[in-house]
């Protein structure tokens, strides 16, 4: 799929659609996800986190994963990931992307973080811009 710059100029909603249809690698190379929203460029958050603890081989729970923007950055080296978001539509997008790229170690759940969390225990918990 080829997406032009003009596609990206039609607002955040359209850009998010494009993002959801676009291979992550292409987007990173051509523009960077920071063109579509208020998040740091890929890698910035993980570099800070991994100053404290390596995520390799870890069991990780992520709260507020959205469409998996950050999840897909660290999941390849994690042992397993449980990623939650109360927004079911975002979780559906994340699941579709996980299916597309063959990510087998991520469990995306559409639910809030309160109450017993499945898959415990975890080594690391990430609250990613979750309010």
């Amino acid at each position: 799929m080829r997406v032009s710059l003009a596609d990206l100029s039609r607002g955040k909603s359209r850009a998010r659609e494009v993002w959801n249809q676009t291979p992550v690698g292409w987007f990173r190379e051509e523009l960077g996800p920071s063109d579509i929203g208020g998040y740091p460029r890929p890698g910035i958050e993980l570099r800070i986190i991994e100053r404290f603890v390596s995520l390799s081989g870890r069991q990780i729970i992520e709260i507020g994963c959205g469409d998996g923007r950050l999840t897909f950055q660290y999941a390849p080296r994690a042992r397993r990931v449980v990623a939650l978001d109360a927004n079911a539509a975002e979780i559906e997008r994340a699941r579709a992307e996980a299916e597309r790229i063959g990510a087998r170690n991520i469990r995306f759940l559409a639910r809030p973080a309160e109450g017993p969390l499945p898959g415990a225990p975890f080594d690391v918990a990430l609250f990613t811009w979750s309010l």
């Binding site: 404290f52 109450g115 017993p116 969390l117 975890f122 080594d123 690391v124 918990a125 990430l126 609250f127």
Partner: peptide
């Protein structure tokens, strides 16, 4: 909820 699900000395990044 996260505290209960974390291993002892588990990490949280907010």
């Amino acid at each position: 909820a996260v505290r209960r699900a974390l291993a002892p000395r588990g990490w949280v990044f907010d």
